[in-house]
Amino acid sequence: MAYSDKVLDHYTHPRNVGTLDKSSTDVGTGLVGAPECGDVMRLQIKVNPATQVIEDAKFKTFGCGSAIASSSLATEWIKGKKVAEALAIRNTDIVKELALPPVKIHCSVLAEDAIRAAIGDWKKKHGAEAPVENTAEVKA
């Protein structure tokens, strides 16, 4: 399969790889996908409580090159945005930017889910209404 230059660039030089302290009240964590499907993304955000600006974003992804690129791009895009602006990012924007072929569209869907899950987790910590249905949680 031929990968677009942008996918190759994110795969070779992934942005914002890492881990934030998931117990911090300013950090939201989204974990989406499943190992048996071949894709798991964890995306984390650190939000400034005063400005609602996403000051930092980190990801780790188990998955194909397109999945890695989609989540890397997602962190790049949400950093510096307000939470509400980050929620406006759509998977189709990621497909367009990375020139993903149809068979890889699910990677972009997963990246959008990861953004929503991370924001949902953060909102939950602040007692707000939170769409948490996409977040995978450790049982017990």
């Binding site: 790889v17 989406v32 996908g33 048996e36 499907c37 992804t61 890695i68 997963l110 450790v138 049982k139």
Partner: peptide, 26 residues
Amino acid sequence: RELSPLYEMVREGIDLSKIEWQAEGH
């Protein structure tokens, strides 16, 4: 593996089979 959330979780002693994984809606 530096990029893999699974590898990090296993290093931390988390049992991956105990996690309720949610695949994307397809």
